[in-house]
Nucleic acid binder design. Structure first.
Lengths: 218, 218
DNA sequence: ATTTAATTCAGTCAATTGACTTAAGGCTGA
DNA sequence: TCAGCCTTAAGTCAATTGACTGAATTAAAT
C-alpha cells in the first residue's frame, strides 16, 4: 500500500533537492522548471508542473521542507529560554535553530543561499514571510526580545527585529557560499558563526537609540 | 557636434532608468532585455544589446551610475571624519552616503531594491563588490572602523563589517519597498532611517565578542 | 552639397520555456 | 486475477528570448 506513496514521495524529494541546489547555485529565475526536472532525473519535462504547479509553488514547498525542522529547534530553545530577560537568550532563539539546521545537513548546503535570494525577490519574498516568520513560535521569540527593551518605541523595536533577520539570513548565505567555494570563513563551524552573530545582534539590540528631535538638521 | 552625443546619452539614460525600475519591481531575471528596450520607448528590440551588451553589462552600468554620486558623498564624509576614533563617525560614512543619495533622488527610488537583489544573486554579486566595495574611499572607511576596535581579531572585524553592509543594503531596500507600497515605515525620512541604522550598527560593532574556547560544547 | 558613419528601426532566426496532449507503466484494491 | 487510476514518459504547441540581419535616419565631416 505504501510502495506507491513512497515512490511519489521520493520523486518529490528529488525534485525539491535538485531545485534547491540549482536555485542556490544559479539563481531562482535563471533556472527553468525543465532544468529542475532533468536534474532530478525525471525524463518527464513537466514533472515540476505535475507535482508542484508553478515555480512559486515549488519555492514554497522548499521553504516548507526546511521550516518544519527549524521550527522544532526553535520550540526547544524557546522552552529553554522560558521568560528570560536576557537579550542573548532570545537572539539565540533567532539564530541557532537556523545554523544548527544547516550544520545538521552537512556540507554542502544550499538552503541559506536559496533563502537569501527568495527573501530579496519582489515576487517571492511574501512566501518566506508567510511560511516562516508568522509561526506562533516566532511570535514568542519576537515578544521575548521586545520585552528586554520595553523602553524602546515599538517602531524601533520592529526596525531592529528586521535588522536582526537580515543579518541572520544573509550572513548564513555568505558563509554557505564561502563553504561551497572552499573560501576561508571567519569561523570554523556553524556553531561559532552563530556565536558571532549572537554577539553582534545582541549589541545591535542593546544599543542606545538616538531620540528623534524636531530641530535636527536635514 | 554634441547633439548626437547628447541624443545617445539620453537613450542610454532612458534604458538605464527603465531597467532599474523594472528590475526593482519585477526582479532582475524576470525582465528581458526586450522589455527594458520597450519600456524605454525604443522601438528597437535590441537596444540594450546595442548599447550595453549582455544583461550583466547592463547591471554593471546601473551600478556605476549610482556609484559615482555615492562615492562623492563618501569622500566628503570621510574628510569630515578625519582620524576620528568614534565608531559612529565611521558607521555614518558607511550609511549616510547611500541614504542621502536615495533621498536626493526623491520618491520613488528603485536602486536600493535593485541593489539588494544584485548583491544576493550568485551571478551578479561580483559586480557590485567590484564596482562599489573596492574603492579607496571604502577602504579608508573600513580602516577607520577597524581602528576603533583594534583588540578584535581581524576575522571578527571582517565579519562585523560584512554584517554592517548587509544591514545597510537590505534595510534600505526594505524601506524603499515600503515607500513604494505606501506602507508605513518606522522612520519618516531617509535621514532618520540612517540614524536608526547608525545606532544599531554602532552597537553591533561595539558589542563584546565571545572569546572562542576550545572546550566549548558542540 | 555630398559622403560617411553611428544610431535607430523592423524583420527574422534558432533555442528555450511553460503548458498541453497522449500513451505507457505499474501499484492498488476489489 | 484484473480493471482502474496515479505516476511517468514522450512528443507537441504557441510564445518569448537573445542574437543577427539589412535598411532607414540623421548628425557630422569633407
Amino acid at each position: 500500500m505504501a510502495v506507491r506513496a513512497e515512490r511519489v514521495h521520493a520523486t518529490r524529494e528529488q525534485l525539491l533537492t535538485a531545485a534547491e541546489r540549482l536555485f542556490a547555485e544559479r539563481g531562482v529565475f535563471a533556472v527553468s522548471n525543465r532544468q529542475v526536472s532533468e536534474a532530478a532525473g525525471q525524463g518527464n519535462n513537466t514533472a515540476v508542473g505535475y507535482h508542484f504547479g508553478t515555480k512559486t509553488d515549488l519555492v514554497r514547498a522548499i521553504v516548507r521542507r526546511h521550516a518544519a525542522p527549524i521550527e522544532r529547534l526553535q520550540q526547544r530553545m524557546v522552552a529553554e529560554a522560558g521568560d528570560s530577560a536576557d537579550v542573548r537568550d532570545w537572539v539565540a532563539c533567532l539564530v541557532r535553530p537556523l545554523t544548527e539546521h544547516l550544520a545538521d545537513m552537512g556540507n554542502p548546503t544550499w538552503y541559506a543561499r536559496f533563502s537569501a535570494q527568495v527573501m530579496t525577490d519582489p515576487a517571492l519574498r511574501g512566501i518566506v514571510l508567510e511560511e516562516a516568520y508568522t509561526s506562533p513560535t516566532m511570535m514568542r521569540i519576537v515578544d521575548g526580545l521586545n520585552r528586554c527593551r520595553p523602553e524602546l518605541p515599538p517602531e524601533i523595536r520592529a526596525e531592529r527585529d528586521d535588522m536582526a533577520r537580515q543579518v541572520i539570513v544573509h550572513m548564513c548565505a555568505e558563509r554557505e557560499r564561502a563553504l561551497a567555494d572552499d573560501a576561508p570563513t571567519p569561523r570554523p563551524s556553524w556553531h561559532d558563526a552563530a556565536t558571532g552573530m549572537i554577539d553582534a545582534i545582541a549589541g545591535l539590540w542593546l544599543a542606545p537609540a538616538t531620540i528623534p528631535t524636531r530641530e535636527e538638521a536635514s
